[in-house]
Amino acid sequence: MKYLAHFGTYCLMWRNIFVKFTKWRILRKLIIKEINDLIVGSFGIILTMSFFVGMVLTIQMALSIENPLLPDYIIGYAVKQSMILEFSPTLISIIMAGRIGSYITSSIGAMRVTEQIDALQVMGVNTFNYLIFPKIVAMSFYPLLVTISMFVGVLGGYFVSFYSTISSLPGFMQGLAHSFEISHVYYAFTKSFIFAMVLATVPSYHGYYLKGGALDVGKATTVSFIWSSVSIIILNYILTQLMLT
């Protein structure tokens, strides 16, 4: 019953975001700031993680598939598929639930405990729109991060194939070109967009409806990470079932 009430409040929050819009002149500044904080600020971690995971995937594939009957291109193909289908959209989103989610929950939660949200409400500002809408707009650029992650992950695999003898470079390149399905890319982008909305709104919900003091900001951040991750995992299954089967 408690979870149902939370879900209902979360849905009402979505509705309230679009009820009364903040002046565009103010909203524009907020959107630019959020793009900078949420998207541009995540480039470093995305590049580092994707590159190293791409390298590790290549090594593990090469070590696992030592059967001479399997073709050479299978390593490149498996790395490409893993990056496009799962690692970049899903695992990166879970990592981002830690980075972006904690930032959103703690920033909104701190505003709640210091009565800044109350001050906005007293002025007549639609706090849902003012605080959450810019984050939603900024996070709609999230699939761009996922695309970069896909490229950098594959680049990591290429790097391993180039500098080590564990996998042949021509085989790896052949695997990248082998059986490329554009529907998989659509699937990955759809997933990442939906995950982006989860990443923008679930942590906002936990920050906005926070009750208590500074200690509770920390607790809310943890709870927000758990719920964002759980939502992403569940939605990942639903979307995979709907789009790939």
Binding site: K23, A110, T114, E115, Q116, D118, A119, M123, V125
Partner: peptide
């Protein structure tokens, strides 16, 4: 409204805090 803890917007300087409602 003057809140107990002042409730100033952390991300804005003094002038921006005061200008906020007029700009809005």
């Amino acid at each position: 409204m003057v809140f107990q803890g002042s409730a100033l917007f952390d991300s804005m300087n003094v002038e921006e805090n005061i200008r906020f409602s007029m700009e809005m």
